[in-house]
Amino acid sequence: MSVEKELSKYLKEGDLNAYNTLFKTHYNKLYGYAFKLCNNSYQAKDIVQETFIKLWLNKEKIKTELSISNYLLKICHNEFLIHLRSKKKKRLF
């Protein structure tokens, strides 16, 4: 079993150490991705923070046979879209 799949399995069971390991190993990659999308450091940090919050809140739904890296990128992308929609709504008002 790969390390990522093991971490996914432990995270799904609520292991905080697995969560911290995933955070440490994926934060910079997700931050770089979010920054490329929004070109704003503060917003990118918020997006990544929300990504990891959603990961923890939805840990029971993780499919351990799938890539946790891809799962995190998908959450991050969706968080960017949420921020984008929110920003657009604020401009309309």
Rank of each mutant, 00 (worst) to 15 (best):
D46M: 04
F80K: 04
L73T: 15
S2C: 07
N17I: 06
E79P: 00
C38N: 08
R85W: 07
Q43H: 14
M1S: 14
T51I: 06
N40Q: 10
R91Q: 11
F80L: 07
S69G: 07
T51S: 05
N17M: 09
F52H: 01
Q49L: 12
I53M: 04
L73V: 09
W56C: 03
N40T: 08
K74Y: 15
D15C: 15
Y27P: 08
L37H: 14
S41E: 13
N78E: 07
N39F: 08
T64P: 01
F35H: 11
K54Y: 07
I68L: 06
N70S: 12
G32P: 09
H26Y: 15
E4F: 09
N20Y: 08
E4Y: 15
A18K: 03
C38I: 14
F23S: 06
L7D: 00
I68Q: 01
L81E: 08
C76H: 03
N78Y: 10
L72S: 01
E4N: 13
F93A: 07
L55Q: 01
T21P: 02
G14I: 04
A18P: 03
C76E: 02
F93Q: 10
K59D: 02
L16K: 10
H77G: 09
L72R: 01
K63F: 12
N28G: 13
I62Y: 04
K61Q: 15
N17L: 12
S86F: 15
L7T: 00
N70D: 11
E60W: 11
N28F: 11
K89T: 13
T25D: 14
N28A: 07
S41A: 11
L73Q: 13
S69F: 05
I68P: 00
F93L: 13
L30F: 12
Q43I: 08
L72I: 03
F52M: 02
V48Q: 02
T25F: 07
E4A: 13
K12Q: 15
L92G: 06
C38F: 14
S41M: 11
L57V: 07
S8H: 02
L84H: 09
W56V: 05
T64R: 04
K63D: 10
A18N: 05
S86D: 14
Q43G: 07
F93V: 09
N39S: 11
E79I: 02
C38V: 14
N20A: 10
K5P: 00
L11V: 02
H83K: 11
Y31M: 12
K87T: 13
K88T: 10
E79N: 05
H77S: 11
K24V: 08
A18M: 06
T25K: 09
A34P: 04
N70L: 13
E79T: 04
M1H: 12
T21S: 15
K36Y: 10
F52R: 00
G14K: 04
L81M: 07
L7G: 00
A44Q: 05
E13R: 08
